[in-house]
Amino acid sequence: MHQVKGVVARAKGQPVELVTINVPDPGPGEALVQVQACGVCHTDLHYREGGINDDFPFLLGHEAAGVVEAVGPDVTGVAPGDFVILNWRAVCGECRACKRGDLQYCFNTHNATQKMTLEDGTELSPALGIGAFAEKTLVAAGQCTKVDPSARPAAVGLLGCGVMAGIGAAINTGAVTRGKSVAVIGCGGVGVAAIAGSALAGASPIIAVDIDAKKLEKAKAMGATHTVDSSSVDPVEEIKRICAETYDGADGADVVVEAVGRPETWKQAFYARDLAGTVVLVGVPTPDMKVPDLPLIDVFGRGGALKSSWYGDCLPTRDFPMLVDLYQQGRLDLDAFVTEEIGIGDIEAAFEKMHDGNVLRSVVIL
């Protein structure tokens, strides 16, 4: 048993606390990871606000990189000393999705079996099965993906959630390639990552849409060719205008990524795509939100595809090493997503900064 410091949300809407937690030694199929860096993701705030479920207390944190300290019996994929990025999709290899070769859609992803606890024995619910706002965490060994150990932990750890979700929404889910036009609605961390992924794939134009000028500037720095302030113009009409200027006869973007998770912006994405275009929902809605009222003839008549992107439809063992290699080659600027490095006691302040538009990611350094 290991006693370490961790950040816990005890109740809905209450400030997080830095407390001592108990982390078991790894059992069969498990790995103990010494966390080096962990990004502060909006999903952690969702947990604190009760927007995911009510299984309090939560051990927050999930966008993490670190070093494997120990593994349980029968673990062969990773070993002590390996530098890893943590993921929340340890695939089973046995379900119908895995058996047909679609491991990224595994229906039976799993986490560590043993529970981390408070000092009094109260079981903790780790965010996305990880719980990495802690000096050490216990995960399923399949949640550890080995990558180049010379990579900067604060940067590559962000592939554990938001950056991978955005890049994957564009490249994996939206099938963005050169010659395609892309619009991204919502330019927080995930949206800007979708822009970076679209640029990496050679798309043009790449249109960033937001109501915050500071976020639009960040989007432009990461590869957006055009920006649209949707507080002052109709984003649907502006996306259509830009695409028509680039491709004669275009009536919208080939791929529209919705990275907000609201019915209003999803409806904008629906109407901003070209005929036979694709809408990708990667923004996370709350349980009370409904699909907006749309004439069914519009759904039929426009053709194309309406998709949701879960973790960027990624397969960590395939995608993480590739993206880290691109980062190491200077072709994917993951450092640009790290706005600030903070201590483990500064997470509540980082939540507050999410609302001012100045921060893509605050990253906890342990």
Rank of each mutant, 00 (worst) to 15 (best):
D254C: 09
G345C: 08
L315Y: 13
E245G: 13
H46C: 05
F300R: 06
L128D: 06
Q14V: 15
A250T: 01
V71G: 03
K115R: 15
K180W: 09
K115P: 01
F351N: 02
C38F: 12
P235Q: 10
E69G: 05
Y105V: 03
K215Q: 04
D212G: 01
W266G: 06
E94T: 09
G131D: 01
G191W: 04
T177H: 14
G51Y: 12
D54E: 14
P235V: 07
G160F: 14
V147K: 07
F337D: 02
Q3W: 00
I239A: 02
P153I: 05
G81M: 07
G179S: 06
Q34A: 14
T227W: 01
D74N: 10
R241H: 10
L45M: 06
Q114E: 10
G51S: 12
R152D: 15
Y311A: 11
D54V: 04
V338E: 14
T43P: 07
K180E: 08
V68N: 06
A70Y: 10
V299Q: 03
I130Q: 12
V359E: 00
D288R: 07
L326N: 09
D251Q: 10
A154M: 08
P24M: 08
I365W: 05
D333S: 15
V257G: 08
R273C: 12
G157I: 10
E49Y: 05
L128S: 12
I239Y: 08
P126F: 11
V291Q: 06
R89V: 15
A259F: 13
H42G: 13
I207P: 14
F83W: 05
G131K: 01
V23G: 10
W88D: 15
G168Q: 04
T177K: 14
G131Q: 03
C187I: 05
P321Q: 04
I52T: 09
L294F: 14
Q3M: 05
F320Y: 13
A350K: 01
V192S: 02
L159A: 03
C38P: 02
A31M: 14
G174T: 10
G261H: 11
V228A: 11
D346G: 00
A132M: 13
D313P: 13
V324M: 12
G197K: 02
G39I: 03
I206D: 04
A165W: 00
G303E: 11
L323R: 02
N172Q: 07
C144K: 06
G189E: 00
C243F: 03
V324H: 07
A208G: 09
P285W: 09
G81T: 08
S362L: 04
D288P: 01
G121A: 09
G6Q: 09
H46P: 00
R152Q: 13
A97Q: 14
C144S: 07
P295V: 11
